[in-house]
Amino acid sequence: MFEARLAQGALLKKVVEAIKDLIEDANFDCNSSGFSLQAMDSSHVSLVALSLRADGFEHYRCDRNVSMGMKLASLSKILKCANGDDAITMKSEDNGDTITFMFESPEQERLSEFDLKLMDIDSEHLGIPDNEYDATVKLPAAEFQRIVKDLSTIGDTVEISVTKDAVKFGTTGDIGNANIMCRQNKAADKPDESTEIDINEAVSLTFALRYLNSFAKATPLSTHAVLKLSKELPILVEYHIPEVGRLAFYLAPKIED
């Protein structure tokens, strides 16, 4: 059987809220090392990769590898019934056709159980090599969210250019254009506000803002978003979930026709 208890149930709520608009349904893969998901959006332009380590759970048991297909909208409906401070336990019997979500309030005076029907989903996995990236930018997650939101009011795409000291986000639209530059800033006294750039080679790539805005829904999971870019490769946008794992998004670039 599979059984996993997350004391910070809010994490699971935030993860599902971050991905439910991007992917309709997906297989959650459980094995002895953890709980993970890999799914492409319907247009095969972006990919979500979630990984929650077994040791990030308060209790974790997975007797055999299982793949549980779920409709994200249904999962979201159920998780919305959990309070932010509830612990969440997921349970499923081997070869079962449902997964049970148990919500416990901190004082355990309220216990609720919701069963979600599992689905058979044909999923297409992509083999993603561990790339060396030309540039890595770590910036406050809220700052990244604001940049992609603000630029979306002007244009549909963003050109992200990284140099040694700064990262520039630029867009062009019918009403004009916009540029936002963030300089490297390693404020030791305010680590949550730091912007760090690690670069092997200057890089400049263009992406659809619609998807970056969707990725930024993961902002509540982490203080920082990490952007990894390489010429002619999809961007990797990572949110590290402290002590539990990470939620990552890949987005293919746009190129001149």
Partner: peptide
């Protein structure tokens, strides 16, 4: 015009 590439252009089915 910018063309949107797909992920399978970059990553092999695995």
């Amino acid at each position: 015009m910018l063309q949107q590439l797909g992920l399978p252009v970059f990553y092999s089915p695995g």
